[in-house]
């Protein structure tokens, strides 16, 4: 037996991707339609009456935030559902009894969820070009931020899927935590527009750093320094990795 079960990782990855194909409308089309509605309402209807923000047309300004909103939500949903469903149906027994290491298991599940989020992010970006003129100042960093954010929130979703003991708990964090934090994290505005006290409060919102860094990759302007954004995202990624490591070390909600 090889030290790395690549076929096992591929099996999990392809299985998860096939679920993405089976739920095409829910996974891809629904978020694209929702984002298009945002562009129509905020970009065209309201945005046409607003001036530029940081030298960027309002419709284009909200593109990074909207991509982040979808990527964060879908990363959590895809990854949490991907691991929660086999726990719920009991099919997790097969993965746990297979010659697959915890790292390979995470690579398969989180890798597939990250791929789905990347596809979604790219499709929304392509959709955005239909509504607003777009330019990307730092394409490499744009992709890097997207990959890092998607992978981080997929890891977070994986943790959520292992923690959750019901579908309600599974929906709790994306609906009641991530969506509000994204809306308040500068998806539709620059936090510089907020009064001083609220701007300080906003800096405690981790999503601010994700959106700010991502927006910097598009337009070269940011609410917080790009190095701080990158460090915050990396820090969250490492924290999620640490929790996943602990889960497998203790068997938390996976093994008795």
């Amino acid at each position: 037996m090889n030290a790395f079960n690549g076929r096992g990782v591929l099996a999990i990855y392809l299985f998860e991707m096939s679920r993405f194909n089976r739920t095409f409308w829910q996974s891809l089309v629904a978020p694209v339609i929702t984002t298009s509605l945002y562009f129509i309402v905020f970009g065209a209807a309201i945005g046409s009456r607003m001036g530029e923000l940081d030298g960027v047309h309002y419709g284009a300004f909200i593109v990074p935030g909207l991509i982040m909103l979808s990527v964060l939500t879908e990363s959590l949903n895809n990854a949490s559902f991907g691991i929660y469903l086999p726990r719920f149906t009991g099919t997790i027994y097969e993965v746990l009894s297979a010659p697959v290491s915890p790292f390979e298991m995470v690579l398969g599940y989180v890798g597939a969820a990250t791929t789905k989020s990347m596809i979604l992010g790219m499709v929304i970006l392509a959709t955005a070009t239909l509504f607003v003129p777009l330019s990307i100042a730092h394409p490499f960093w744009m992709v890097a931020f997207l990959v890092l954010t998607a992978a981080t929130f997929c890891l977070f979703g994986f943790i959520l899927g292992i923690w959750a003991n019901g579908f309600e708990q599974l929906q709790f964090v994306p609906m009641l935590v991530i969506t509000p934090l994204t809306f308040l994290g500068g998806a539709f505005y620059s936090i510089d527009m907020l009064p001083g006290a609220w701007r300080t409060v906003s800096l405690f919102n981790p999503v601010v750093y994700l959106i700010s860094g991502f927006r910097w990759a598009f337009y070269g302007t940011a609410d917080v320094a790009v190095g701080v954004s990158l460090s915050a995202t990396l820090g969250f990624f490492l924290a999620c990795l640490g929790i996943v490591w602990w889960i497998f070390r203790t068997g938390y909600r996976l093994k008795n």
Binding site: G6, A11, I12, G90, P99
Partner: peptide, 26 residues
């Protein structure tokens, strides 16, 4: 292992589920 309970992924075809199992075991 054949478990006691009928733990299966209901939406997958028979062929795909056995192919998945073989791949999972390397």
């Amino acid at each position: 292992l054949v478990p006691q309970e009928l733990h299966t992924d209901m939406f997958v075809t028979v062929w795909n589920t056995v192919r998945f199992s073989r791949g999972l075991f390397g």
